Amino acid sequence: MTAPPRLSWRDVRDRIHDQILTGQYGPGDRLPRDADIAEDLNCARSTVQRAMQDLSDSGLVERRRKGGTRVRPDPVTRATLDIPITRREVEQRGGRYGYHLIRRSEANAPRAVLSAFELDTPRPMVRVEALHLSDSRPYILEDRWICPRTSPEIRDLDFTEQSANEWLVHNKPYTRLDLRFYAISAGEEIAGLLETPVGAALMVIERTTWIDGAPITTVKAITRPGYQIQTGS
């Protein structure tokens, strides 16, 4: 007898989606563990994880480290964005790309970085601060922390030529992405680097990625005044 084909992640996603829409799992309900769902549906745990990530990206569920997966109390629709390569972004807009490494260092991650990664204990990480340029003018100031446990190659890279942004996009796929947008007022150091007046309103794009629950990188990309995000579908 031929064994039935294993479910794809889309099949698993659709089943759980239907269970939420029909009320089997209501707002705030905790879903079974990924391993239990995989056993029940006779599929790989990675298949369930991929399905759950898609449901999380669509705003139906929320996943927390050590907290499991719950149906969101107020489901929302979220836009899904690919992480852009800044060099390509500048070139697609007709600019001449430039790059300047400000500094590269290694230290225990500060509390704000641990919080972004949802970690409880300090650990050494690589910090890369760099300036992306368009037509020789500041474009994006990048302050990035990278976890060597998930990216051990990072200790052998100096990022004087290629940006950490481009290397990570090409080499470190992720299973989870958190994205935030907010505004700050430019202090003296940032204003000097971006060649903008002190106190100018600047948009910050903060991204954090994980692979199967383990942190990869978190970055604050501080954009020049007038920066615009372009998306398409």
Rank of each mutant, 00 (worst) to 15 (best):
L41C: 03
G226A: 00
D14P: 02
D178W: 07
R127M: 13
E106S: 13
C43R: 05
I216D: 02
R180E: 14
Q92D: 07
S8R: 13
D135N: 12
R123S: 13
S163R: 07
T69K: 05
G95N: 09
E62V: 15
V219M: 03
Q53A: 15
P75V: 08
V12Q: 03
E142A: 14
G94D: 03
D11F: 12
Q162H: 08
A44P: 08
R13S: 04
P4W: 10
I85G: 02
L141A: 13
D40V: 12
R15A: 06
V169Y: 09
I211N: 10
P122H: 03
H17N: 07
V113I: 14
G232R: 10
D158Q: 11
H17Q: 12
D14R: 04
P148H: 03
W210E: 08
D29N: 12
V128K: 04
Q53V: 00
I190A: 03
L168C: 00
P75E: 05
R78M: 13
I184K: 10
S134P: 03
P215I: 09
R30A: 11
E195A: 10
E39R: 15
K220I: 03
E189M: 05
A38F: 07
R149P: 01
T217N: 13
P148W: 08
R111E: 15
G98P: 08
L157R: 12
Y174P: 02
W167N: 00
T231V: 14
A112E: 08
E195W: 01
Q53Y: 14
T231A: 08
L60C: 00
I85Q: 12
M1I: 09
L179W: 09
F117H: 06
L81I: 06
S105D: 15
V61Q: 01
I146A: 11
D36L: 07
P32Y: 12
G67P: 01
R45G: 13
G98D: 06
P84N: 03
L133E: 10
Y25V: 02
D178R: 15
D40C: 05
P122G: 06
H100P: 00
L202A: 09
Y99C: 00
A44N: 06
L141Q: 06
P32L: 11
R88D: 15
D54L: 14
T223N: 04
Y25S: 01
V12C: 04
I83R: 06
Q49F: 12
Y139E: 01
G68C: 04
G226F: 02
E91W: 01
I16E: 02
N42V: 14
L101P: 01
M52E: 01
Y182F: 14
P197K: 07
P197A: 07
T160P: 00
D120V: 05
Y99P: 03
P138D: 06
K220H: 11
T22H: 10
A116F: 10
L31R: 00
